[in-house]
Computed example of a mutant assay.
Amino acid sequence: MKAALMYGPNDIRVEMTEKPACPKDGMILKIMAVGLCGSDIRNLTSDSRKGNYPFIYGHEIVGCVDEVGPEETKYHVGQRLFLFPGTYCMECDNCISGHSENCENEHVAKLAGTGGFAQYIAVGGEKIHYGGIYEIPDGVSYEAASLGEPLTSVFACLENAKVGYADTIVIIGAGPIGDFMAQISKIRGAQKIIMIDLNEHRLEMAKQFGVDEVIVSKLDDPQYAIDRVLELTNGKGADKVISATPANATQAQALYMVKKGGLVVFFGGVPKGSKTELDTNLIHYNNIWIKGHFGASYDQSKRAFHLATSPNFPAEKFITHILPLDEINHGIELTKTGEAIKVVLHPWD
């Protein structure tokens, strides 16, 4: 089969490799589309495997069942499926309490997750047993269904932060995640959405997703974006501020953009080992709540997938580039420069 193999940082080669064998209790999924995620790009451009190469990334996977093992009875050849990368045991304390995104079972968590930059992927019986596989509705394209994965964490974040009518929201970061946040915040009833980014082109594209005001931030003047937010909120600050960038600086900035008693969410992961300096007096005296967000529960993942594949969600606006798998490196550059919102790769083109 054809696959995009990572041999090291920025060394991604599309080659022919061996097709995986079908598990006796599982299936082989023929991958019809796979989204290119920001975390994929971060992994592909850094020494993410610490020398353990080659490796196949890609986790926004949709396809059709190509083969089933003799012991598999749930799925059949030809079914169109979305493969959610998260897998939860549903038995540990976190799963039982409704927070399966914090599943404590490391073995189960590793049952699915990556390998999508290829033409086929093997899905074992354990993954099928624990769940997180959803059938794609008739009439929904593979490309639209692939948005179910990146939409999941955003959907969960906004639900957990209780974004709704008539919030004023600040989103720092105008990448695909920021755009998803803007669109879903509007669906949830947010009244005003302010988006901040260094890239003016990205901000212009974000306006189609319900963004009301944009702020082009300045690296040499971090106070500028703060002052603009206060100006746009009559000096009060926003109800909720979401830092959706991999930068420590935006986490620190967010505290000065939120109103007293407001909520700051750290959504974007920052470089491992880095530290963010926070003004704890400001947090204390302004009664600021801070929440970290990562992942989504099974329940949230399923509802997010239903939203992504519903007529109410403008999937076609987010997918700006559909490229063959051979052009994965081009897709990475398009995403990094901000020319693309969402790149979806076709392994069979």
Rank of each mutant, 00 (worst) to 15 (best):
I226P: 00
I187H: 07
V211A: 07
K236L: 14
M257Y: 02
S185W: 07
A249D: 03
K275R: 13
T250I: 01
L282M: 14
L198R: 09
D220V: 00
S310R: 11
Y298E: 10
E277N: 12
N281E: 10
S185A: 15
F267K: 07
Y224F: 14
Y298R: 15
D227A: 09
Y224D: 03
Q300P: 04
A308P: 00
G292M: 13
T245H: 10
H284D: 09
I215F: 01
D220C: 00
Y298A: 13
I290C: 11
I226K: 04
T276N: 05
T280C: 02
H293Q: 15
Q300N: 14
E277H: 12
H306K: 13
K260Y: 03
G292A: 13
Q300A: 14
S301D: 08
Q251D: 06
G210R: 09
A206M: 09
T233L: 09
T233A: 13
N312A: 14
A249I: 08
V265S: 06
Q208A: 12
F313I: 12
K302E: 14
A190L: 11
N234K: 14
L255N: 02
Y224Q: 10
S243D: 10
S310A: 10
N286I: 00
K260C: 10
T250D: 02
L255A: 05
T250R: 00
V211Q: 10
F266R: 00
P246G: 10
L282W: 10
I288R: 00
S310Y: 11
K218Q: 15
I193F: 08
K240V: 14
R303Q: 15
L307P: 00
A244P: 08
E277I: 12
I226H: 01
L230W: 02
